[in-house]
Nucleic acid binder design. Structure first.
Lengths: 336, 336
DNA sequence: TTGAAAGCGCTAACAT
DNA sequence: ATGTTAGCGCTTTCAA
C-alpha cells in the first residue's frame, strides 16, 4: 500500500492538516515544522493520491485533446505543441483520436464518460460543421480549434486563414506568376479552411488585377498527398496553362510536386509551388517547399492558456482568438 | 452539480447499492428493478464520477505513453496505433513527451506524480540505456518499447531488428548490389537499434560472400533527415564507390535521397535506397522508398495487451515479446 | 435480490 | 500556526 498523508503525519508527529499544508505550499508554517514534515515525506517516499485529491477538489490536472489522427503530421505537430504548452501550465494531456472526419464519432466523443477524468477539452473537429455548432454546448470547459465552426458557444482559437492565403498568393504574384492553380477547393463549401483560403486567393488576385479562372481550381475531397497528386494529374491532363500551384495544405502541395516532377516540369522554373501549414517536412523536400506557417506554437499555447483560464472562470463569455502567421519562402517559389 | 448515485437511487426508489449494481452490470437484479434504475439514470443523465471510482477501486482506466516527441513521424504513428489499441481495451492514453533523448528527463518522468493518474506506462526510452536497466524497477506496471535496454525488470516489446536488417540487406543484394553504404552507425555502441541493425547487415553480407568495408559506414549522431543528408554528402565527398544505401531509418534514407538527387544520381538506377520503419511518408516520396515495416500495429497491440494483463496480474515474471516485420519493396530498389 | 454502513485519501471549513 | 472534522462519490463487505 502506498503511504498516505496520515502516515506522514504520524511519522512527523503533526496533524494530517499540517502535512497537507506543507504539500500544498501553504505559507504560514513554522520552518521547523515544515522541515520535519518534508523529512518524513522524503523518508516514506510519499506521493499524494491524485484520485483522492481530484475527488475532493473537482480537478484532475488533466486536459483532453481530441483530434482526427496523429498519423497526419499536422495533428502530430499540433499535439506536440499542445503537450509542451500544457506542461508549462502544469497540466497533462489525454489524447483522443476521432478518426478522419467521422461526425457521429466526434459528437459521441463530446459526451463520452472518458472525459470525466479531464478538466476540459481542446477539440479540433473534422467531421462536424457549422450546423453542429449547438452541439458544442457542453457542461465542461471547451476550446475549439480550426475552421469548421465559427460563432459557436465556446472559446475558439484559429488562424487568419483568409489573410494568410492572400499573403501566400501575393508571394506567388510577386514572384511573377499570373496563372496560379489551386489545389484543395471544396466545391459548394461556405465555411471551412478551403473556402476561407480560396477567398484570400481571390482577394490577392483582384488586388493584382488578375482575372479569376475557374479552370485553375482543382477540387479535391480530402487533403492527403495522394489527392494532391491526383488533382495535379487531372490538371495536367486538362491542358490548362499555369505557372504556379497553391496547395491549400502542404500535403497536397507535396503530392503535386511529385507529379510535376514526374511530368518533367521543373520547380520553380516552370511551376512555382506553395503549400500551407508549415509542416516540418517542408524543410526537407526536394525542392524545399514554400509554405505558410500558421504559428502552431502560438495556437497551442493560446488554446491551453484559454482552457486553463476557462477552467478557473467558467462564466466569462466565449471569445475568438486569432493567431499570427508568416509566409515562409523556400526553393519551390524562388525567383531568378 | 453533477448527479450522483445517490440522486439516482432516490429517484428510482432503491438503495444506492442497487444503482451501483446496475451500473456495474451485476447479474442478479430483478429485471423490473434494473428497468426502473436505468430509467432514472437516463432521466438524470447520470454519469459515474471516475475520480471517486478510481479512489475506491485503485484503477483509473488511463495508461501513460511516454515517448521522445510526436513531431517525429515514427512516434506519431506509434502513438496513433497505441491509442487505437488502448481503445479496444477500454483504456485511454495520456501522452508524455520526454524530448529527444534527455536521459535525466526520462528518469524523472518515471517517478513523476503525474503518473499517479495512470494504471501503468508504456515507455519508449531514447536517452536511457542498458546501464539504466535497474531504474526500470518501478512500483507500477511498465511495458518497455524499443532497443535501448534489454533484459530489464519489465515486460519488453521489440522487433526483430537484426533479422529485419538482414532481410533488408539481402533485398539489396538480391537486386544485384554489392557496395551497400550504411547510414546511421553509432560508433562504439554495443546495444541499440544501430548496432542490432548493423549486425544484421553484416550477417547478410557474410552469407552473400561480400566483404565488409568500413569506408561504407556513415556514422551519424541523430537520425533526422538533415543527418541523413549530411552523411550522404560526406560519403559522396569521400569518393568511395557504392551502388546502394541502407538508411537505418526512413528519415535518414529520405535525407540521403535528396542529396543523391541533387548530385545528379538516379535512384534506383545509379544507387538503390532502402529505409527502415515503414513510415507512411515512404509511400509518397519520389521515388517511393523501399523500407522495413516493423509491424507497428502489432507492437502497439502487444504493448497494450501486455500492459493490461500486467495491470491485472502484477506477479507474473516479465517477458520479452518479438513482433513480426516485413520488407516492403518499392521504386527506390526496383531492378531492371 | 437488495440495503446499510464503512472508508478509499484528500481538502476545506472551522476551531483553537 | 496547527488541529479537528466532515464529506467528495464510489465500491465493498456484511446483513437481511
Amino acid at each position: 500500500m502506498a503511504t498516505t498523508l496520515h502516515d506522514v503525519a504520524i511519522l512527523a508527529g503533526v496533524s494530517i492538516k499540517t502535512v497537507s499544508n506543507v504539500v500544498n505550499d501553504y505559507e504560514h508554517i513554522r520552518p521547523a515544522t515544515r522541515e520535519k514534515v518534508l523529512k518524513a515525506i522524503a523518508q516514506l517516499g510519499y506521493q499524494p493520491n491524485l484520485s483522492a485529491r481530484s475527488l475532493r477538489s473537482g480537478r484532475t490536472g488533466v486536459i483532453g485533446l481530441a483530434l482526427p489522427e496523429l498519423s497526419l503530421s499536422y495533428f502530430a505537430e499540433l499535439a506536440d505543441a499542445v503537450i509542451r504548452a500544457a506542461e508549462r501550465h502544469h497540466l497533462v494531456v489525454l489524447v483522443e483520436q476521432t478518426g478522419g472526419g467521422d461526425r457521429a464519432r466526434e459528437i459521441e466523443m463530446l459526451s463520452s464518460p472518458r472525459l470525466q477524468l479531464t478538466d476540459g477539452l481542446i477539440f479540433s473537429p473534422r467531421g462536424m460543421d457549422q450546423n453542429d455548432a449547438a452541439l458544442l454546448t457542453v457542461p465542461y470547459p471547451l476550446v475549439l480549434l480550426g475552421e469548421r465552426i465559427f460563432g459557436g458557444p465556446s472559446d475558439h482559437v484559429t488562424m487568419r486563414n483568409t489573410e494568410a492565403a492572400k499573403a501566400a498568393t501575393k508571394h506567388l504574384i510577386d514572384a511573377g506568376r499570373r496563372r496560379i492553380a489551386v489545389l484543395g477547393v471544396h466545391e459548394g463549401e461556405l465555411v471551412g479552411s478551403s473556402s476561407l483560403r480560396l477567398q484570400g486567393y481571390r482577394e490577392a488576385l483582384e488586388e493584382a488585377g488578375i482575372d479569376f479562372d475557374q479552370r485553375l481550381m482543382a477540387p479535391v475531397d480530402r487533403w492527403y498527398r495522394a489527392d494532391g497528386a491526383e488533382a495535379m494529374r487531372s490538371l495536367l491532363a486538362s491542358g490548362v496553362q499555369f505557372d504556379a500551384v497553391f496547395g491549400f495544405n502542404d500535403t497536397l502541395a507535396l503530392g503535386a510536386m511529385r507529379v510535376l516532377q514526374e511530368a518533367g516540369l521543373r520547380i520553380p522554373q516552370d511551376v512555382a509551388v506553395m503549400g500551407f501549414d508549415g509542416l516540418d517536412e517542408t524543410k526537407y523536400s526536394l525542392p524545399t517547399l514554400s509554405t505558410v506557417d500558421p504559428g502552431r506554437d502560438e495556437i497551442a499555447e493560446t488554446a491551453v492558456r484559454v482552457l486553463a483560464d476557462r477552467i478557473e472562470n467558467r462564466d466569462a463569455p466565449p471569445e475568438q482568438y486569432l493567431t499570427n502567421f508568416s509566409v515562409v519562402a523556400r526553393e519551390s517559389t524562388a525567383t531568378g
